[in-house]
């Protein structure tokens, strides 16, 4: 698994609306005022329609809100919609249509970028389902606390040690071993996440509205949220380590 959202930037255009309102709104065509029932084009005048601000990325790309997505199907849908929206194909159209094409393409590109990466996808889904994941503090994982403190000390010693000295060489070896341990831990977290993703999807597919299902849902979300935060934390520690020892 890979993600390029190291710092959990909070500038992305997240759509933090209530999930129940996130269905594609039936609306009027901006051009001929008839009701639009199709996805992105008016049935009557075939003009392109703006993707509504309330449309979430899953809906935009026509996928159910699941944590496992077939990357080939996602790519195929992205290409199909790119052909429908891209400004290249609106050069001879009206200014309004050109503006819609530009706006839709930008949304489509963000949607694809977010959904194609499993980690970003999960973070996004948590945003939709249970408020912002980023509100959770990046405190060190409880079971790692001691280890991280010790690692920080070693890092400081390494930085203070004379270059290419024997002490530094030893510290370097120690840090390298630590790096491998942390990477393994990150790997374990990802395996763990994969399982939770599958569980979440199964629960959604089942569509139970019982109180038991609701409890299970909240428990899963909480778990995913915790592991995602821990993973981000471990990842930044590893990056820092690699940057220091090269």
């Amino acid at each position: 698994m890979d993600d390029n959202k190291d710092t959990g930037m909070d500038h992305h255009d997240t759509h933090n609306s209530n999930p129940r309102e996130l269905q594609m709104a039936r609306s009027m065509c901006w051009h001929c005022q008839s009701e639009v029932s199709g996805e992105y084009f008016c049935d009557r005048c075939i003009k392109v329609q703006p993707v509504s601000k309330e449309t979430d990325y899953f809906t935009c790309l026509g996928f159910p809100r699941r944590l496992t997505i077939d990357p080939r199907k996602l790519e195929a849908k992205f290409y199909e919609l790119s052909r429908a929206f891209h400004p290249d194909f609106y050069q001879n159209k009206s200014e309004t249509e050109q503006a819609i094409s530009l706006g839709n393409s930008a949304i489509l590109n963000s949607a694809y970028r977010t959904l194609r990466d499993p980690i970003q996808r999960a973070e996004y889904l948590l945003d939709l389902e249970a408020g912002a994941v980023k509100e959770l503090k990046n405190s060190p994982p409880a079971d790692l606390f001691e280890e991280i403190l010790e690692l920080q000390d070693t890092l400081n010693e390494y930085r203070a040690a004379e270059r290419t000295s024997e002490t530094q060489q030893q510290l370097r070896a120690k840090l390298h071993a630590e790096q491998l341990t942390l990477e393994q831990r990150k790997q374990d977290m990802e395996t763990n996440l994969q399982q939770l993703f599958t569980n979440w999807d199964a629960l959604q597919d089942h569509g139970d509205a019982t109180s038991q299902a609701r409890t299970e849902r909240d428990r899963l979300l909480k778990q995913i949220r915790e592991i995602l935060a821990n993973r981000t934390y471990v990842k930044s520690i590893v990056n820092n380590l690699v940057a220091t020892i090269g």
């Binding site: 930037m9 500038h11 400004p87 393409s105 930008a106 949304i107 590109n109 963000s110 694809y112 970028r113």
Partner: peptide, 13 residues
């Protein structure tokens, strides 16, 4: 950073 390098364009933030 609002839009990362190698982001498909058109892109908005």
């Amino acid at each position: 950073s609002l839009i990362h390098r190698n982001t498909t364009i058109p892109a908005s933030a």
